[in-house]
Design a protein around this nucleic acid. Structure first.
Lengths: 185, 185
DNA sequence: TCTCCTCGTTCGGCTTGACGAACGGTTGCG
DNA sequence: CGCAACCGTTCGTCAAGCCGAACGAGGAGA
C-alpha cells in the first residue's frame, strides 16, 4: 500500500481522465463547478485539495473516487493450466495458485484452488472486512466460515466473510474451484 | 455510484475503523499527526477535509484510502448451479449468469459463463479501463480482444482489456468458465 | 475526599485552499 | 488585418480547514 502522500498520483490521474474525456481543463473545471485556477493547481500537483473538490471531479469524469487516487493497469496476460506458482499446504491436500493479485488500490486476488479428499484446509481470520467468493469447477466441496460451512457442487457459488476462521474441504478424488478474495487492505 | 457528497460516509467510516482499532479519538489523532479537534469535526461529519488529512488517517488505520470513502458489506450467500438468472444471447449459444455484482464502490462483477459450439459471443467495448479475467472450468474457449484472441483449455487463465470489442467462443459441445469483470464505474 | 490524567468538544487565530479577475497566447472567422 | 472566443497560468482576496488552548466530564489512585 502506498504510504507517501498521494498528491502527485492524483495530479497524474486527473490529467489521464481528462485526456480520456477529450476536453480542456477549462471545460472540466466548468463541469465540475470548480475554478480553472484550482484545477490548474491540482493537475500541477501543487496544493492539497479538499475531498469535495476531488469528489466533484470524479463525479464529472464518471469514475469512482478511488480511481483518482489509485490508477489501474491493463494488458492481455495468459497463465496456462499448471503454469502458475502453486502453493501447497503441509497439513492438507490443498493447493492454491494465485493468478492475479489486485493492482494497487484494487482489493481482490484471484486464485485457482484444488484439492483431494483429506484434511480440510483451515484459514485463519483475514483482515477485517475481507470477503471470499468461491465458484466450484469440479468435485464436491464443503467450505465457509467455521461452523457455517456449506456443501457445494460444480456450478455452485458461495460468498462469505473471511475475517474469521474458515475452511475448504473436498470428499472427492479431485476437486477445483475459483476463489476471489476481496479485502480492505 | 454514489453521486452525493461523501462527507457523512467518511464520518461513519472513520468511526468504524477507529472502533475496529479499539482506540480513542485522541489517540487516533495523535498517531495520524492531526489535531483532536480536527478529528472530532471529521467524525461529526462537519467540514470538508483535505486529501492529506484523510490520507493520514487511512495510513494509520492501515486501510486503503478508498475504504474511508466507500465502505464494504459482507454475509454468507449461496447460489446453486442453475439457480442464478441466466441471460442468453440471441446470436450465439452463450449464456452468462451474474453471481455477484460489486457492492457500491467495488469495481467488479463475477459471472459464470457457458456456451456450446457455434457463433462467437462478441461484446462491445465496455467503459474505459474495464478489464476482464477469465478462468476456464470446462471445454476449450477462444477469447480476448478482437484480433488478439487466445485459445484456452480447462485451468487456463487470461486477463485482457475489455474497453474495446472482444469475444468468447467455444468449439466443444459444452464449455464453462468464470468471468470476473473489473471496471472503473 | 483530592489530585492527576485522559477524554471529546468548543473556541479563537493562523494558514492555505478555492475563488474570480487579469494576463498573454492560440485559433477561427469576417 | 482585427475581433471574438477560448485556453492555461498567475495573482490577490476571502473564508474555511486545521491548529493549539481551554473547558467540563469521567475514571483511577492515594
Amino acid at each position: 500500500m502506498q504510504r507517501t502522500s498521494p498528491l502527485q498520483t492524483i495530479a497524474a490521474a486527473i490529467r489521464r481522465e481528462r485526456a480520456r474525456m477529450g476536453i480542456s481543463s477549462a471545460e472540466l473545471a466548468r463541469r465540475a463547478g470548480i475554478a480553472k485556477s484550482t484545477l490548474s493547481q491540482l493537475e500541477a500537483g501543487t496544493g492539497n485539495p479538499s475531498v469535495e473538490t476531488l469528489w466533484s471531479i470524479a463525479v464529472v469524469a464518471g469514475v469512482p473516487f478511488s480511481t483518482l487516487v489509485d490508477p489501474p493497469t491493463t494488458g492481455v496476460r495468459v497463465v496456462r493450466a499448471g503454469e502458475g506458482v502453486a502453493i501447497g499446504s503441509e497439513s492438507s491436500p490443498f493447493t492454491s495458485t494465485l493468478l492475479s493479485a489486485g493492482p494497487a488500490g484494487v482489493r481482490r486476488d484471484l486464485h485457482l484452488i484444488s484439492s483431494t479428499a483429506g484434511e480440510p484446509r483451515t484459514a485463519d481470520a483475514h483482515s477485517p472486512g475481507t470477503t471470499e467468493h468461491m465458484l466450484v469447477s469440479q468435485g464436491r466441496w464443503t467450505a465457509g466460515p467455521v461452523g457455517e460451512e456449506v456443501e457445494l457442487d460444480p456450478g455452485d457459488y458461495v460468498t462469505f466473510p473471511a475475517d474469521r476462521p474458515h475452511s475448504y474441504r473436498t470428499s472427492t478424488a479431485s476437486a477445483s474451484a475459483v476463489l476471489v478474495m476481496e479485502y480492505p487492505s
